[in-house]
């Protein structure tokens, strides 16, 4: 089973807002804020590795530049991916989700012979959740989002798709796109052997020319959406702390205050 995992390398989204500044409609992290594989993309890698361990095949990680995404791909290799490809070209800069999906789709097409394409459910920086749909539509494949479990029966995938009340069992034939939710797997921590092998690995870079992409369809030129403005919403702190000698007293005071506020 050949699996492609699309990953995004993003600034640590758990860093406090104070560690980002807004510059020209972009978020710029403070120096020292680490980049990491986006939330749920690492879970997608883990899901791919588990499928491979069960059914054989190979796992390829791909990521759309910038060049620093190479470190994210190294991490994917250290976790156990068989190969990685960096997609980097000045023409890709400032791509929106549509441009990104177009580049990833072209790369997947170039890789050929793919049974399953995994992505995270949404990137942790922009939280859009669009790219998986774009890849599926560009490649004409079915897509399932968001998945918390995937299994391969030998002829089809059974994907557990989350919905409000629980999950649905969806049968889908390969090749297909599945966007993974965080529950799908717990990403492994790479072994040192993996880290060492990854540090020696060569990661090829594919450009627009390599992918046969018309630069007018991607990057700034190919955008369907634009960012007008970024800002930080204000949160006002107004917490009233309930204190007391013991839990009973605290509980009684809290209940009293909630009643005064007509919340009970």
């Amino acid at each position: 089973m050949n699996i492609v995992v699309c990953i995004k390398y993003v600034p640590d989204w758990e860093a406090p807002a104070s560690q980002f500044r807004i510059e020209d409609s972009r978020l710029v992290p403070a120096p020292g804020i680490a980049y990491r594989i986006s939330d749920t993309d690492d879970e997608a890698i883990e899901a791919a590795l588990q499928l491979k361990e069960k059914h054989g095949g190979r796992v390829t990680a791909i990521s759309l530049g910038p060049a620093s995404a190479r470190d994210g791909l190294k991490h994917a290799l250290a976790m156990g991916c068989d190969q990685a490809v960096l997609l980097d070209d000045p023409a890709f800069e400032d791509s929106d989700a549509a441009g990104t999906a177009a580049v990833l789709a072209a790369a997947i097409r170039k890789l050929g012979d793919v049974d399953l394409i995994l992505t995270g459910r949404q990137a942790a920086d922009w939280d859009q959740g669009q790219v998986h749909a774009g890849i599926a539509e560009f490649l004409g494949l079915p897509a399932v989002i968001p998945a918390r479990h995937i299994e391969w029966t030998g002829s089809e995938f059974i994907v557990h798709r989350i919905y409000e009340e629980g999950y649905e069992e969806i049968a889908v034939k390969p090749p297909c796109v599945v966007a993974c939710s965080n529950e799908i797997a717990e990403p492994r921590y790479p072994t040192l052997r993996g880290i060492m092998a990854a540090s020696r690995a060569q990661i090829p870079v594919w450009t627009a020319a390599d992918l046969g992409i018309d630069p007018g369809r991607v990057g700034r030129a190919g955008r369907r959406t634009r960012v007008l403005r970024l800002y930080a919403p204000q949160v006002e702190a107004k917490c009233e702390f309930i204190e007391g000698e013991n839990p009973e007293e605290i509980a009684a005071k809290l209940v009293q205050r909630l009643r005064e506020e007509k919340l009970l």
Binding site: A17, L27, W126, P233
Partner: peptide, 9 residues
């Protein structure tokens, strides 16, 4: 965006 830390128009 960014988990709710920022807003984008």
């Amino acid at each position: 965006i960014l988990g709710g830390n920022f807003r984008a128009e």
